[in-house]
């Protein structure tokens, strides 16, 4: 079996005329960031969400993902940027957006309908997802949008995981070219190696002092991945150790950004382009422990390098409740 490096060289030579250095990532300068408008999260991210990259905001429902994304858009719009919201489940609340500082005239809202002529409704979100991905692709290719939010927050994680890696790779390239921050809201991380930042949100506390006004809601944000931070090159180190046992598959030694792994029977199952850290967690049984991982800037802010950095932030209650109370 040819080595990964040899394969990469052969593929790049074959595509050289149309795509020079197709599988070699372009050297990156210092990554720019844009503040989210939430001080705690900005501190955690050392500035904010990256510009020209994919950021994933994950977590279960009611974990503050939408509030965070809306606040980020509101912050971007303060200086006159235009943004887009691709809504898979048609769940965006315009009043919430306005309360978080989003200027309606600067927001392009794509409400996926999931209706197709001649197709029966089967309750599955494939049509919506297809529409959302095509819309995101168009918006990224058009350029000029400072931030695009792909909202898959209401969709089960197993559907989002079916999005091909090639799609995320294309989105990453387009976002990088147009300097657009693509924020993906989902229940689980699905962009794999293409995401520069993965945040996991969680509802911590929602107790109220009064009987009528819901307030005191706090969210916890955990930084699961932060790549390309200030280093000038892509980080290839492993961020975390797999929590699940993945003895079912034995990886083939990877080289560079190509990885291949085979099942125990030895048959090749998958060959993709990704950083080694981007392989699904369960396949990284060979990953070194964090103590063995190369020095990585994103870990510097965390006193305990075995745990990803965590921060908590609080959101004010519903905009009309306090007023009416």
């Amino acid at each position: 079996m040819p080595s990964a490096a040899l394969l990469r060289m052969q593929i790049e030579q074959a595509l050289e005329r149309r795509f020079p250095a197709a599988l070699s990532p372009a050297p990156q300068a210092l990554r720019e960031t844009a503040p989210t408008g939430i001080a705690e999260v900005d501190k955690l991210l050392e500035g904010g969400l990256p510009i020209g990259a994919i950021s994933e905001v994950t977590g279960p429902e009611c974990s503050g993902r939408t509030s965070l994304a809306l606040k980020f858009l509101g912050r971007r719009m303060q200086v006159g940027h235009v943004c887009a919201w691709v809504d898979v489940q048609d769940a965006l609340d315009a009043e919430s957006a306005a309360a978080n500082g989003v200027c309606m005239k600067q927001l392009l809202w794509v409400r996926c309908s999931g209706e197709r002529i001649g197709q029966k409704k089967d309750g599955k979100p494939w049509a919506r997802l297809d529409q959302a991905l095509r819309a995101t692709d168009l918006l990224l290719q058009a350029g000029g949008f400072a931030a695009i939010v792909l909202d898959m927050g209401g969709m089960a994680a197993e559907y989002a995981r079916r999005i091909p890696l090639a799609t995320w790779f294309r989105f990453r390239q387009a976002a990088q070219r147009t300097q657009c921050s693509l924020v993906v809201i989902g229940q689980r991380a699905c962009a794999q190696s293409s995401a520069d930042v993965v945040l996991e949100c969680k509802l911590v506390r929602a107790n109220s002092d009064t009987e009528t006004v819901l307030s005191g809601i706090r969210y916890e944000v955990r930084r699961e991945r932060a790549r390309g931070w200030g280093g000038g090159e892509l980080e290839h180190g492993f961020q975390r150790k797999s929590e699940s046992d993945s003895s079912a598959e034995t990886p083939v030694p990877a080289c560079g950004n190509l990885y291949a792994f085979t099942s125990r029977s030895g048959a090749a199952q998958k060959l993709g382009y990704a950083d080694a850290e981007d392989a699904p967690a369960k396949t990284l049984s060979f990953a070194p422990r964090l103590s063995d991982a190369p020095e990585s800037p994103f870990c510097e802010s965390s006193p305990d390098r075995r745990k990803p950095p965590v921060s908590t932030w609080s959101a004010a209650g519903a905009w009309d409740r306090e007023k009416r109370a």
């Binding site: 606040k71 719009m77 303060q78 006159g80 489940q89 978080n100 500082g101």
Partner: peptide, 15 residues
């Protein structure tokens, strides 16, 4: 596009 108004605290959003 002129820019949005500045808001201080994040507000909890509805889905």
């Amino acid at each position: 596009a002129s820019g949005a108004a500045k808001t201080d605290r994040p507000r909890i959003a509805l889905r």
